[in-house]
Amino acid sequence: MTTLEDAISRSQHRSWLSRIASQQLFWIFIAAIVACLTLSLITDTFASERNLFNVARNFAFVGIIAIGMTAVIASGGIDLSVGSSVVLSAMVISVLMADGMAFWLAAPMALGAALLVGLLNGVLVAYGGMPPFVVTLGTLSAVRSLAMVLSDNKMIWEFGPDHGLLLWVGGGSTLGVPHPLYVLTVVAIVMSLVFKWTRWGQHVYAVGGNEHAALLTGIPVKRLKVSIYMFSAFCAGVAGILMAGWLGSVTTNLGQSMELTVIAAAVIGGAKLAGGEGTAIGAVVGALLIEVIRNSLILLGISTFWQGMFIGTFIIIAVAFDRIRHFRS
């Protein structure tokens, strides 16, 4: 017979091992590790320094945006316009730098342009009461068009006096680690703390879990939603600047259909499209798994046409896993 006191103060009724094993993230992480180990054994190119460097850099872009997407999805929304925010940010910085502006001035302008896209999304969703899917579908189209107007649909590959700096920021490496990976690491650590330890993070999950309840408790739901969409656009803006430097040239098809990969990464990493769940680490692991799949298909000599099939299967497996877990409990 346990007393009331014991019952209340007992914090958990399961061991830490069974708790970890019930996390989708754990299994996705295992899948990524297994894929990496298998590839290292059956190909001699996967574990090479050059290839790992490429994998690390490529997944960083998707990972950064997927963290922003996770915030949106955890709040019960969706942001389809991230790919367009990427190209707008890249286009603003490259047009301004080609005109002779310094990197340190052009970069904030590019981020500002992306933030305006997020502001528009957020205001239309929160204050306009429109469904996020439709709003961001609209900005997906409108913002890419704006990037075309801005650049006259020309490729830009000369970035003025700070040309070398932009290429270094996006495409360079320090201590053998590509710069985008540093940015991803910082964003992931900061956002993990923000999601878990701040009022903002708590409210994101609350709105995603039960928006009506959040409203009744006096959470400023509308302002919160605007900030969430702005954060997502900010992440896309950062990725846009890094991608401009990495590619060394910017065209208006940059980031095209990237939103699908990003949403896939977030969902595989445990973000729930119905809202209320999702972690920054999950987004990173999801992005990593997608990049490993993509990379392994190339190394194994399988046609890249199969890529969509593998990623699609993983999305469905991830969601099915979530269903099974809920069914059991």
């Binding site: 708590q202 999950y205 609350a206 879990g209 039960n210 309840a213 959040a214 408790t217």
Partner: peptide, 23 residues
Amino acid sequence: YQDLALCDNLSAASNVFLGREAM
């Protein structure tokens, strides 16, 4: 409220403090 207005995805303590979290 009759529907209790709770967030299922949060802990009991988080629900009690929702909107006026201890910092």
